[in-house]
């Protein structure tokens, strides 16, 4: 798994690629939470995710909850089919704001 954080339109975009599993999800959690702690809204780009397990999903849920507590925007973009399958299993596809890309997310939140 690799990740990179880039700034797009005021959002910290955490771009993940590869397998997000028990051995790599702590890094993902840290990247998301650290950005939120800086007061930045966060979008997690899952377009390059080839696999995600429940520990990876837990990192996303923790980010979502931390963002809500801090009144910061949070969402998922470019969700790969592998990631979407797991989000649907967890019935979280109706919980997370999900968009194709940063622009679509911005349009959706108005």
């Amino acid at each position: 798994m690799r990740y990179e954080i880039v700034n797009r339109n005021g959002y910290a975009v955490v771009q993940l690629s590869g397998d997000v599993d028990m051995s790599t999800s702590p890094e993902v959690r840290e990247a998301i939470i650290n950005s939120l702690k800086k007061g930045e809204p966060v979008l997690v780009d899952l377009s390059g995710v080839t696999y995600i397990d429940s520990s990876g999903v837990a990192s996303l849920v923790e980010g979502y909850q931390t963002a809500r507590a801090g009144k910061l925007d949070f969402g998922l973009i470019g969700v790969s089919s592998a990631a979407m399958n797991v989000l649907q299993l967890a019935r979280l596809d109706k919980v997370f704001p999900i968009a194709a890309n940063v622009d679509e997310h911005i349009r959706a939140v108005g």
Partner: peptide, 18 residues
Amino acid sequence: SLDEVRPGGLGVHFIHAI
């Protein structure tokens, strides 16, 4: 239960769902 949105505890649900 999946009604509560919280981290953790999803693995057993995945196993039984699949």
